[in-house]
Amino acid sequence: MISKGKRTVGSLAMALSAAAAFTVAVPSGTAFAIDHIQCVGGENYLKIWSHLNGRQSVDCYANAGKTDFGGWWVDRISTGNNDLIYYDANGDSVKIERWHDITFPNRPPKVRAIQIL
């Protein structure tokens, strides 16, 4: 017959083992899922006007995360209700706070990635 103390210790060890296994199996932190979305007038999404090799584009993004921007030259950024970091081709990262609308008429940055915080 197993004593009550040994069963308690065994149960506690099993619970700790299960908790450790669960911690390893489930990643911690925030899940990032930035989405390239259709631009809709009146919405407060991140909106970026850009150009590359004679083509122009207007793109909108929602939700926190980071995505590749392909080295396009950025002419204008409207952050809407998003804090943004863009990573340029020179290796710099630039943070732009929410509710800003910035244009780059003379020297547009060549952006390799964007991140909504």
Results as ranks from 00 to 15, higher is better:
L46Y: 05
L52Q: 14
F32K: 14
T23M: 06
V24W: 02
T23G: 07
G41E: 08
M14V: 13
S28M: 09
V24F: 04
S11C: 09
Y45A: 14
L46D: 10
W49N: 14
T23F: 06
V26H: 02
L46Q: 08
W49Y: 09
H51Q: 06
A33R: 10
A31F: 12
A33Q: 12
K47H: 07
P27Y: 06
G42W: 01
H51A: 09
L46G: 14
G41R: 04
S17E: 08
G42P: 09
G10N: 12
E43P: 01
H51P: 04
E43M: 05
L12A: 09
G10D: 10
I37N: 12
I48M: 11
A21F: 00
V24L: 10
A25F: 01
G10R: 09
T23H: 05
A13C: 15
A25C: 01
A15E: 03
F22Q: 04
S28K: 09
S28H: 09
M14C: 11
L46P: 08
S28V: 09
Y45W: 11
A20K: 08
F22C: 10
Q38P: 03
F22D: 04
L52H: 09
M14I: 11
I37K: 12
A13F: 15
L52S: 13
V40R: 08
V24C: 04
S11H: 07
L12D: 02
I37H: 10
V26L: 01
V9Q: 12
V24K: 04
N44S: 15
H36N: 05
I34N: 08
W49L: 08
A13H: 13
L12Y: 04
